[in-house]
């Protein structure tokens, strides 16, 4: 240790209280800045984790699309991951007490879907092939129809069609005759029918909670199976995560501009990435964090500046003596 280091060290030791206060000040300010940034990023991470668990880990959902569009989206360089749910068809839910939800909607997942979407099993296990199904609990709770675990069921599967032959999907509520006096309880007159195409046999391997991805107005209870396949164009429901969440809005506009597809964004999740056009959540969070950091930095600078100013004023004489005695340049 040279004489100048020894001088600095002795000055520090000689002013124990100030040195201690300065060191504690620096540690505290560093800790507080770290704490604020950690809190902000933790809230963001918590929000992302919570929303991914609640509504699924996806940014964009392209509905009623086809396999061609699905594979095209998978190849898009902005897309990180793409997974889908394909509608195999509808089956009548015999004995259903909910007049507005008279069907089972059999949907096939791919592996990406099972990894990214919130499927909460309450009993049994996930289906492993196209012959096994998961039944949502609200089939019993809401529809009044029960199934047994391990039960083999046979469904007449087809598609919902209007009288004009137009296909109807889960996004379209039950197509019924509008009643002029809605408050009166009248019999529902359905304007759609199920065009049965085939008979399918499934084994019930599990039950799960009502999925977030099923709209309340959807006319079919979502029954899940594996092995997504394109039965007919429009049966694909594609979910996307992007490499850069900030691309979500522009990509959504771009796909909407193509006209043929319905598209939705997961705003609840995107707002935690600071992307959603409809939420200033992250801006407020970053703003609060920024204000706190500025306050901490100002406090720290004041503390350290004062400590150094006192220290320098005390050492000025000594530094002048060093110079008088021939302090080497640069020390």
């Amino acid at each position: 240790m040279n004489i100048f280091h020894r001088f600095s060290l002795k000055c520090l030791i000689g002013n124990k209280t100030r040195t201690f206060v300065t060191i504690v000040g620096i540690i505290l300010s560093t800790a507080m800045i770290t704490a604020v940034t950690t809190i902000v990023t933790s809230i963001q991470a918590y929000g992302i984790a919570y929303e991914s668990k609640r509504s699924g880990d996806w940014f964009l959902n392209v509905k009623q699309t086809d396999a061609k569009q699905y594979f095209s989206l998978r190849e898009d360089e902005r897309v990180k991951e793409a997974f889908c749910l394909s509608c195999i068809g509808y089956a009548d839910l015999e004995g259903c007490i909910n007049d507005y939800k008279p069907y089972l909607c059999i949907q096939a997942m791919d592996t990406g879907f099972t990894e990214h979407m919130p499927i909460e099993l309450t009993d049994g296990r996930m289906p492993e092939n196209g012959n096994e199904i998961l039944i949502p609990n609200h089939v019993f709770e809401d529809g009044g129809v029960s199934f047994e675990l391990g039960e083999t069921v046979i469904f007449d599967v087809g598609y919902r069609e209007t009288e004009d032959g137009e296909l109807l999907w889960q996004e379209q509520k039950l197509f019924v005759e509008e009643n002029a006096n809605a408050k009166e309880e009248t019999e529902i007159v359905s304007l759609e029918h199920l065009n049965v195409r085939e008979e399918k046999t499934y084994t019930v391997v599990g039950f799960y909670n009502r999925p977030h991805f099923e709209n309340y107005y959807s006319p079919g209870y979502t029954v899940l199976t594996m092995e997504s396949q394109e039965v007919i164009p429009g049966s694909y429901n594609v979910y996307l995560t992007l490499k850069r969440p900030s691309d979500a809005i522009s990509m959504m506009r771009e796909i909407s501009g193509q006209g043929a597809f319905q598209i939705a964004s997961n705003n609840a999740l995107l707002r935690f990435y600071g992307v959603s056009a409809r939420s200033d959540f992250m801006m407020v969070l970053y703003g609060m964090g920024g204000i706190l950091i500025v306050i901490i930095v100002l406090g720290s600078v004041a503390l350290i500046y004062n400590a150094f100013a006192i220290s320098i004023s005390e050492r000025t004489n000594s530094l002048a003596y060093f110079r008088l005695l021939g302090r080497p340049a640069g020390r």
Partner: peptide
């Protein structure tokens, strides 16, 4: 200045 400092030392 460096030479001057050496001189003083």
């Amino acid at each position: 200045e460096e030479k001057l400092a050496i001189f003083r030392r």
